[in-house]
């Protein structure tokens, strides 16, 4: 990722080379990428603070991951290895499309499905089960960057609340949740406090992933293209969920009726985040949401553990 930013800024699009089919490396011009990298640096310097940036037009619609895409395109270079996941899956439409787009506009950058191999992982709504290292960057696609959006409509007021670290309203929302439901029900996008200062949305990752943001070895960059904001959780930064001292944050437990931890139907893992999958006969089963982790795990555990069902696509292919 280093020393590749100043290279020759254009390339030919394979064999159909015409002057009109030329793109800059990483689709954006160098100045645009530099601006985004500067926003990222500022975000790293002030963990959890939402840095405004000039979100560019992308060849995909806003809301389809343009924030994450722009960050990835700004930091990627030849020699980098990219993994793209959508809800833990390497094979979903969003992940496949983004990956092939980046492959096309970033020659020299490799792609992979292996979390260990990747130098950059772009993700929508999950953190890979494999623990990332210091040499890796996790790029999140964020729909709504401001955690206060749900409790304060006026953006000017929200900026003020962040500035004064006045987060009573987030706790009030939590209070109301407990009053209504008897416990904290907030699922994805659980509010967190970064570095004991700014309140932040971890993007809609499940509660399962929230503790894994804290003191992570890797850099976490969050890009919201539609809302034009970038924020970051640098390595080894404390991320604490917002909670009451007697109503604690907890991760999804995945217990069955007998109170036992449900195992992935494919790889048998009992230590991963599970998706509930509807089978064609109407029954449901649980499988790892992280498909790459699941596949690797299944290979190690193989032969297929007894009682596990064979992998079937949830939708007819």
């Amino acid at each position: 990722m280093t020393d590749t930013f100043t290279q020759d800024a254009s390339f030919n699009d394979g064999e159909t080379s015409e002057a009109s089919r030329q793109y800059s490396y990483g689709l954006m011009d160098e100045a645009a990428k530099k601006e985004i990298r500067r926003a990222c640096l500022r975000a790293v310097a002030i963990p959890g603070y939402q840095v405004p940036f000039a979100s560019r037009e992308m060849p995909i619609a806003r809301g389809f991951g343009t924030g994450g895409l722009q960050i990835t395109l700004s930091i990627i270079g030849p020699g980098d290895t990219l993994k793209v996941i959508d809800q833990g899956s390497d094979d979903s439409v969003n992940a496949v499309s983004l990956r092939s787009l980046i492959e096309k506009v970033c020659p020299g950058a490799n792609t992979t499905e292996d979390s260990d191999e990747a130098t950059i992982v772009q993700t929508r709504h999950r953190i890979p089960e494999t623990i990332l290292g210091e040499h890796q960057v996790l790029v999140f696609q964020v729909p709504y960057p401001d955690i206060l959006g749900g409790v304060e409509m006026n953006e000017e007021r929200r900026v003020q609340l962040h500035g004064e670290t006045d987060y009573a309203k987030l706790y009030v929302a939590l209070y109301e949740d407990v009053v209504r439901n008897g416990r904290i029900t907030s699922g994805a996008g659980y509010p967190v406090e970064v570095n004991r200062h700014y309140a932040m949305t971890p993007s809609p990752i499940p509660r399962w992933d929230v503790p894994r943001l804290s003191m992570s070895h890797n850099l976490n960059l969050f890009g919201a293209g539609r809302e034009k904001k970038i924020f970051a959780v640098p390595p080894y930064t404390e991320v604490t969920p917002i909670q009451f001292s007697d109503q604690r944050f907890s991760v999804e437990s995945f217990l069955d009726r007998n109170g036992e931890r449900i195992a992935c139907a494919r790889c048998g893992s009992t230590g991963s985040f599970l998706d509930e999958i509807y089978l064609s006969d109407g029954a449901t089963t649980f499988m790892c949401s992280d498909t790459e982790y699941c596949r690797k795990n299944a290979e190690i555990v193989s032969p297929v553990p007894s009682g596990a069902v064979e992998f079937r696509s949830p939708i007819p292919l």
Binding site: Y175, V179, F244, S245
Partner: peptide, 23 residues
């Protein structure tokens, strides 16, 4: 948009109380 109790909880919360039962 929030309950009467929530309105009071908001003021109690700014004073630093973080225990649901106490609030």
């Amino acid at each position: 948009r929030i309950s009467a109790g929530g309105n009071i909880a908001e003021r109690v919360l700014v004073s630093g109380e973080r225990n649901y039962g106490n609030i």
